[in-house]
Design a binder for these strands. Sequence first.
RNA 1: GCCGAAGUGGCGGAAUUGGCAGACGCAGCAGACUCAAAAUCUGCCGUAGGCGACUACGUGCCGGUUCGAGUCCGGCCUUCGGCACCA
Length: 824
Amino acid sequence: MEKYSPQTIEKKWQEVWAKNDVYRTEKDDSRQKYYALEMFPYPSGNLHMGHVRNYAIGDVVARFKTMTGFNVLHPMGFDSFGMPAENAAIQHGVKPGDWTYANIENMKRQQRQLGLSYDWDREAITCSPDYYRWTQWFFELFYKKGLAYKKGATVNWCDTCGTVLANEQVIDGKCWRCDSEVQKKNLSQWFFKITAYAEELLQDLAKLPGWPERVKIMQENWIGRSEGLEFTLEIPELGEKVAVYTTRPDTAFGVTFLALAAEHPLMEKICAVSDKAEEIKAFCERVKGQSEIERTSGEAEKEGIFTGLYCVNPFNGKQVEIWVTNYVLAEYGTGAVMGVPTEDQRDWLFATKYGIEKILTIQPPEGELRLEDMQAAYVEKNGRLINSGRFDGMEMHKAMGAIMDYAEEQGFGERKVNYRLRDWLISRQRYWGAPIPIIHCPHCGEVLVPEEDLPVLLPEKVNFEQGAVSPLAKCEEFLRVKCPKCGGEAKRETDTMDTFICSSWYFLRYTDPHNDKAPFAKDKAKYWAPVDQYIGGIEHAILHLLYSRFFTKVLRDEGLIDFDEPFTNLLTQGMVIKDGAKMSKSKGNVVSPEDIIEKYGADTARLFILFAAPVERDLEWSDQGVEGAYRFLSRVWRILGQFASAIKNAPTTYDPTTLTGEEKELRRVLHLTIKKVTEDVGERFMFNTAISSIMEMVNAFYLWQDKALNPALAREVAESLLKLLAPFAPHITEELWSNLFGEGSVHRTKWPSYDEASLTQNEIEIVLQINGKVRDKITVPVDLDREAMEKAALAQPKVQALTQGKNILKVIAVPKKLVNIVVK
RNA sequence: GCCGAAGUGGCGGAAUUGGCAGACGCAGCAGACUCAAAAUCUGCCGUAGGCGACUACGUGCCGGUUCGAGUCCGGCCUUCGGCACCA
């Protein structure tokens, strides 16, 4: 027999599969669909192990679902706009498109080497004009629906990348991609109004039982809904009112100062009348210069400056000092906060530092708080009100409602729901993105590019010079355009779109990838979408998944699709770790998938990655573990080779009752394995235990290597073994299938079912415990009842010896499991 | 600080509903085969004590519930991930 040679057989079958188009999928209303999707990659140049893990998991799901009878959609594409392509252009003079497409070709080659069951005919590449035409079309849709708008904003600016970053893309004050310090800059920017869907994005998390709880919690926290009271305080000296938002209206009588953000709109008027105007201006400038991270860091010192002005607390008429501070954010709430030192720890620290008055307004249920003894604010949410006028003595939760009622009756406040979520800043001052299809006309203002003129193509001839301005803004040929409305000279918008927009709808494009009349046909999307199983890294738990959910809801409201949520089930895979740290070039612990494939083959790489850890947990890479996976596949190769001639000549059907006892046991193990693998793959996503049970079955098969085995049973074992292993190791199983059974592909066979009757055993080993400790084991008939079990247990010599002279208090018998004798 | 996840042999991990802790694999040890090595096959492999049948201990720590706890409850500790002055 020939030796197992993955290099030869893998290449051979990949060519056969490609030639015969075996993974091509078509809409078929007579069959139930299943949409399996892995997050598409950015074409950085090479696959890493994280990709391999992602695709291996997805491929098992897709192949398993195909074998169990579903019409499976399993596509792949590339999220191919983005900065690295532009950086390559700047640094090496390569065109971003050339660089990107070369990388795509290389990564596709590596994906093909893995033997993944993709329908490549459905490939979506976001930087292709056929694709971004529709990304622009969606922008126009959002614009027409009032969900895309422009506003001046203080934005996060990354000097290295020369672009604006969304708040969500700033990590620790640094650019999420290049890691350099983020600055503040004021620019006019395009936004998508995701906040219009805040409530639904929050509520609909309940419609996602197939999502990991932790992901839903992260999204919930990100949306950050709070209920509270917004009320206004008068500033008599200015003849103005200032609004504050609070989630603790019960503390409203304890307000002793008002804290304003440095960016607050009233600042100018305050400076006009304050005799400390210069100081205040200087303070505000300094605070604005600080990065958001500096201002919001937990360690940062709370700072402020008294404006010399006062406002009036409408609840008790008390005069309240107005301060400007560094710890109040302009973007959240109203940019002004009521300061209650006794019941908010930040306010406590601030008031203590600057000697501001403190008024205690809540007493805990037990004991008495005294201001002079307090070392920190009382932040517990229970107690009764004091120093709060008519609300004195009221339980605080009741008081919240009563105080809000009062504010609404008096007309100076109203209940309000606030969200932490901010609108999505989509403008990028970059070249390598989808151009925003807007024309700025001196007469007509903002004009959408007519639909028939889409796509707005990226110009080929552009200069890439290091600098902060987008190459598009310097490209005359792109810039100059006639106004579609009046025909006069006009200028194109030069901002491009955040790449998260491209990836917010790609799963819909896969359902109808070649459509040039629409982003997708409604009937095709209706058949295939939503995605049944989405698989990807936890790092996308918020941004990508939230944006895709937002897109889905807008498209649903437009009538393009008829479902609320894009991804019915979500699987978040763990990272691939080596030597205790995530694989990365800087740490020098990278293992190249191509090297592993070259040495052991794709089947080994896939099998190891799926066997070494449960999919949701981090996976520690082990070169020796890879060896083990290779040894296992070689074992399968050898044992099936050994039985090959017997299997080929064996009858296809037989009567299992004619088997010998030992043969029946082998058949029992086989059917037990079928049951286990079916459940582990189909219901639990426990691929590691599925593989281990296949290994156990192969071990049982191995015991027969030198013995005569019923050839029909050998055939049944071989057939089922290859089918069970096929989703994990598609090449070796296809080769062996072809060798043993001739025509047809193992991947087009029906998943094996198990014979319940074969699983039953006549006898079973049960455990005998005394006081919960295992003392003996006996073999009994499987259907023995409790009473007989007790009797059998008590008759055991060892049990008798150990219970001699002791009181038997109780005997617990659990059929098929154990007997526990409680003695004293 | 808040939220979330995890903690089991030398290592990765298993134990699905409260019922034999350590499946499967890796590493290690011994043997078979071989002139020899590799490959392969077989056996052993939690800790301590014992020649041994065996005994005691053992799932991060302390307590509880239960005939019985890795699993449930209460309180801690550690590690990892996310968020972090959100009013």
